[in-house]
Design a protein around this nucleic acid. Structure first.
Length: 300
DNA sequence: CGGCAGGTTAGTC
DNA sequence: GACTAACCTGCC
């Protein structure tokens, strides 16, 4: 990478970091523990650390960290070794995606902790983002380790499988997970007793990763694709939620289409980068307000 | 305040 | 194999 990384008293500053837009990274549904501060920066928790991220005059400022943590955790977490220029070049061959890339400029797919991602996306099923965030926060407060206070807020790590295994369905209900409590426990069980080894399945093909993950109750096609894409470097995973379905039908298929067929189409069209394509399309859809035409009285 | 959003399961055909 | 009601909570 040709960018300039400097350490300062409370963190790291990077000049000339291409393809890094905090808004698009944190606001595209891939992560749930990042929150916007009043100054426009984002504070979040990952791998037991609290970090603040801000883009200012083309520089990226990582606050509350140091060179060691940056190298050991954040470099990989933010997928900084990946050349998004190459991905954008390939995807730009499609004229629709060329437009989408403009709106989603600076998006990166994070490499998150697999267990946290697994539980988070079990919670995401049939759920809305603010509620998902709330549940994950409550679970972290209740079962995770206290990390520190940052700008007046207390931060907790997401629990390990061991820490979460003491939970009961009743307790999880208090964390607002609704009917998903039993799925969370089934997932935790499967990881704890070694039925599914997340580090091991990482090396499988996307299709086989999904198959392994779907052995867990509450994990189907969409959720397993999200876990593969957002925590296991499976850039060819293509999670199809209602929004992706709408976007794909609107731009390409022009008619009601089953997820299986959408996946097939995406595979032909975008190939090994279809996971990234999905992220860019999401922004294009948002910009154009696709899906809102039926109910105009929406936000924004 | 009733209606609705949102993936997966489990049941029915 | 395809189709669909039910699941829980918060927001409109």
């Amino acid at each position: 990478m040709k960018c300039n990384i400097k350490e300062y008293e409370d963190g790291i500053i990077i000049d000339n970091l291409k393809d890094f837009n905090p808004v698009h990274i944190f606001d595209c549904g891939q992560c749930f523990r990042w929150n916007r501060e009043e100054d426009g920066s984002y504070t979040g928790v990952a791998f037991g650390k609290v970090l603040n991220v801000k883009k200012e005059e083309g520089r990226i400022i990582f606050t509350n960290t140091n060179m060691e943590d940056f190298n050991n955790i954040w470099f990989d977490y933010f997928d900084l070794e990946r050349d998004y220029g190459e991905i954008k070049d390939v995807l730009s061959e499609d004229p629709i995606l060329r437009e989408g890339i403009k709106f989603g400029e600076g998006i990166r797919i994070l490499n998150q902790d697999p267990f946290e991602t697994l539980i988070s996306f079990i919670i995401s099923a049939n759920n809305a983002i603010p509620r998902i965030k709330k549940s994950i926060e409550l679970i972290s407060q209740r079962y995770g380790k206290y990390i520190e206070e940052f700008r007046g807020e207390k931060y907790f790590a997401f629990p390990s499988p061991e820490e979460l295994s003491v939970a009961t369905v009743e307790e999880l209900k208090e964390c607002k997970v609704g009917f998903r409590g039993k799925y969370i426990l089934d997932g935790t069980d499967n990881i704890l007793n070694g039925q599914i080894d997340l580090d091991e399945i990482k090396s499988l093909s996307t299709e086989n990763v999904k198959e392994e993950l779907m052995k867990i109750k509450g994990i189907g096609d969409k959720v397993s694709s999200c876990i593969a894409l957002f925590s296991m470097r499976k850039g060819d995973a293509f999670p199809i939620d209602v929004w992706v379905k709408r976007v794909m039908e609107y731009f390409y298929l022009k008619k009601d289409t089953k997820p299986k067929e959408i996946l097939l189409f995406a595979d032909n069209k975008f190939g090994r980068y279809k996971g990234f394509a999905q992220q860019y399309l999401f922004y294009y859809a948002r910009e154009l307000g696709i899906g809102k035409e039926k109910k105009q009285n929406n936000r924004k």
